[in-house]
């Protein structure tokens, strides 16, 4: 990618990027080993600055933390998954030069905050370690994102960027989101393709991972679809949307 995106490494290392820049740079990171090394080394250096500001926590904080961990199960380690697995727990998404980036105006009716109001937004660790991206280990989702005809469509939902990358040649689309809280109890997010003559057809239930990230291949013929949407539905999904979309992106 361009020298321009490379020069974001410092700002990225100290979280001095906005949400869109973060997504773009992380896509770049997944492809650029030099930048991964640089970011790690700059984070190391920045961490040393914490030696200048040390402050003890009060006893209440320590007690609260040690009490709470007893009720929280540590996540399993990240392991290399077989190529057919399209779920993801990390956001290092490789992409070739993408085509047109279309930014959509906010059209959602509900925000995530509204849609997931009942869900306690514990928030995910958004810092992820990048795994080696070797061609042979590309997941199906990564293959779509790297397709030469991949186009990206983005929309901001409640301050977070949702991205759909569509490859007409592969007839597939991938939904990518970060900071997306789990759906409220008894609900699931469900994706939809807008198919000419058929209306909204389910493209599958979408569940954010433990870090509130999503990278999933949508089910169905993405090449025929003229757009995609996301709604909150009863657990397991519905045959047709039963609520207003929180995201609606035309493929134009």
């Amino acid at each position: 990618m361009s020298a321009d995106i490379h020069s974001l490494s410092g700002a990225y290392a100290v979280d001095a990027v906005d949400g869109d820049e973060r997504v773009l740079f992380e896509e770049h990171l997944a492809l650029c080993p030099e930048c991964r090394v640089e970011v790690a080394s700059l984070r190391e250096a920045a961490s040393a600055l914490a030696d200048l500001t040390r402050a003890e926590t009060g006893p209440d904080v320590r007690r609260a933390v040690l009490d709470k961990i007893g009720t929280v199960r540590p996540l399993p380690p990240l392991v290399q998954r077989p190529a057919y697995d399209t779920a993801t727990e990390h956001r290092g998404i490789p992409t070739e030069e993408v085509g047109t980036v279309v930014r959509m105006p906010r059209r959602h009716v509900l925000t995530w905050a509204g849609a997931a109001a009942a869900a306690a937004v514990v928030g995910g660790v958004t810092w992820q370690q990048f795994r080696p991206q070797e061609e042979a280990q590309l997941t199906a989702a990564e293959k779509v994102i790297r397709a030469s005809d991949a186009h990206r469509f983005q929309q901001s939902v409640d301050g977070h960027t949702m991205t759909i990358v569509r490859s007409p040649a592969m007839r597939r689309a991938v939904l990518i989101a970060e900071g997306m809280p789990a759906a409220p109890k008894g609900k699931d997010y469900q994706a939809w393709f807008d198919l000419p003559g058929r209306g909204m057809v389910s493209a599958g239930v979408v569940r954010p991972d433990a870090s509130d990230n999503v990278m999933v291949i949508l089910e169905g013929d993405a090449a025929a679809a003229t757009g995609a949407g996301l709604t909150v539905e009863p657990t397991g999904g519905s045959p047709a949307p039963t609520s207003d979309p929180i995201m609606l992106i035309p493929f134009t």
Partner: peptide
């Protein structure tokens, strides 16, 4: 700070020493 430590606890198995220091 509490949230940070709960995150560290939850994510602890995902730390990879090959990719940087634990403190960082």
């Amino acid at each position: 700070t509490q949230e940070v430590f709960l995150d560290i606890w939850r994510q602890s198995a995902r730390f990879d020493p090959q990719r940087g220091s634990a403190l960082s």
